[in-house]
Write a protein that binds this DNA or RNA. Structure first.
Lengths: 335, 335
DNA sequence: CTGTTAGCGCTTTCAG
DNA sequence: CTGAAAGCGCTAACAG
């Protein structure tokens, strides 16, 4: 008969500790989970043995046996490198930590295929819930049977808890601010056909124009997604004969590109004729550039926190029934 | 005798699927993991049943049985909201995804106590490895028995794989650039006593001064950690009689504060006498402010990727033995 | 107070 | 090709 394996390489188990302490596995288990009904001196022995072996209870096994959830929340974002999503994740983490949960984070890179993989994998890992920023054109296939909250973007045909941003209202208000400052020829930077958020912002943009009897020149619609593309397009437009006097930018990446291009071209303009920018999302330091700037911003951290709160309410059964939807307010500031 | 429970609320198991498909659990198991040795028609039936129930194999249970690792990498950063760590996490995610691993991320908020909790918890969840940006003064207690890589900061007394930044060399080069441009009275913004990184950068800073025969005025050492504090201190210094002509800033937060304060005070200066800043880490748009700026930067994404690569090499046994240490190069650019 | 038995969901034998 | 038995690490329930 083989003696109990001492388990040199693999991590030690209850049995290893039990053997070393000269007790049964149950006594180890009890000791590790509070020590109810274990003589202090025995606990002492067990703990010492556990320490010596570097024993650490296997949570997966424990959760399996207790039919308990994993304490994990899956989060999928489209671009982890964007500071926006850093703040977003922070908001989720705040709330999750308060609920003793951890977050499993994944980057979809706007790739619906990768998103599907990721969510499927998360579901297989028994995450308790998902917070998803839908990738691409919002055709996400969400694993049924796992509660989820959609953030930032909706998904066609998916009926579930959602936290959006007041894109239409914010864009409209920001555009109105441009118009009030005399701009009538405004270019639009954003991938309207590819990204739902951009589409809604475009809607608010054109609404504001229309309400002032202005018409949008379709040749000023620039389907750009990142700073580099925005830079190129803005530089190109500024080099033309009848350039726009202002730019509406759908997110902080395109805003950065636009600001850079305008700075590059700045010396060409007489004082006071620097093109204006109205951009969604905050961009650090942008207010100090001396470029007329309208910022339509919301707090991504608050958005993340809100999404997390909705998820936990759903999980705890506080909010059963119909999916709910929240909208984060957008504030317009002018610099 | 009770019929097998249909499991209405809890997630379905192999048994549920087996019952519905009229086969044994084993046939379901085999079907779900490739379908070796299962008649195609039976597979078909099983898959249909699985779909109908929304069955998803429980990975924890599977891993437990297979004595396989979890596929999880734990990452602990000090401030998830900082764009720097967003890029850092992205670099890790890139590499982790390529290795089919997911990342469990936690925010320590520079709190060693929370860090200890977090790492302990991660270890209990059987993460395969840890990537840690040590909190606070670097007294991290790392769970033994889980391979780890320290990033950005060292921990006293901890002997393990580490990825650092060439803080001393970078700070020295950046400072030299300030000196070359005629600055001799330079304030230092950074919590030298609290944050090891700041300490090393201070070392490079004073080295460069000393090598030019300059001495640091200790009254210009500002132990600030965030943008607000940096703003206040810089504003205060600039209001004094004999203000420094330049500021050395230890990170992007303090750089932002310094730049804001200088912009506020800018009109007070005759042209060409705007205080200069030498700051560690990139700050988007900072180069466009018209403030003489020296940036000592490295790529946090590359740093994250490097840390992840070192971890996977360690995990795969490619790099056994002595802990290794990598240093990310710092480039100095002047705007 | 402590140990034994059984079983969480899964899969590796090993029989048929 | 399919199923029954056993066991991964852990703990509830029940004995003692």
């Amino acid at each position: 008969m083989m003696p109990p394996r001492t388990n040199a390489t693999a991590s030690p188990t209850v049995r290893d500790v039990a053997a070393l302490a000269g007790v049964s596995p149950m006594t180890v288990s009890r000791t590790m989970s509070g020590g109810q009904n274990v003589r202090p001196e025995v606990q002492e022995r067990v703990r010492k043995a556990a320490d010596r072996l570097g024993y650490r209870p296997n949570q997966s096994a424990r959760n399996t046996r207790l039919r308990r959830p994993t304490g994990l929340i899956g989060v999928a974002v489209t671009n982890l490198g964007n500071p926006y999503y850093g703040q977003f994740a922070l908001g989720i983490e705040d709330v999750a930590a308060a609920h003793q949960r951890h977050i499993l984070i994944g980057n979809t890179r706007e790739d619906p295929h990768r998103e599907a993989q990721l969510l499927d994998d998360f579901a297989g890992r028994q995450v308790e819930g998902l917070i998803v920023v839908p990738a691409g054109n919002g055709v996400a296939t969400l694993p049924s049977s796992v509660p989820f909250v959609l953030a930032t973007r909706e998904v066609e045909g998916v009926h579930g808890d959602t936290v959006l941003v007041d894109d239409v209202g914010g864009a409209s208000a920001g555009t109105a601010s441009l118009i009030a400052h005399g701009h009538t020829r405004v270019a639009f930077l954003g991938d309207v056909s590819g990204i739902p958020t951009a589409r809604r912002r475009f809607e608010g943009f054109t609404q504001a124009l229309a309400s002032q009897g202005l018409q949008f020149d379709a040749s000023l619609l620039m389907p750009v997604r990142d700073a580099e593309a925005a830079f190129d397009e803005v530089a190109r437009l500024l080099g033309q004969h009848n350039p726009p006097t202002a730019f509406f930018s759908t997110n902080n990446r395109t805003t950065v590109g636009a600001l850079r291009a305008i700075c590059d071209h700045r010396r060409r303009y007489p004082k006071g004729a620097v093109p204006a920018v109205a951009g969604f999302d905050d961009v650090e330091l942008a207010d100090l550039l001396g470029i007329p700037l309208t910022v339509m911003s919301h707090d991504p951290r608050a958005l993340g926190a809100q999404a997390a709160r909705m998820l936990f309410e759903r999980l705890s059964g506080e909010a059963p029934g119909e999916p709910r939807s929240a909208s984060m307010p957008v504030t317009v500031r002018r610099f």
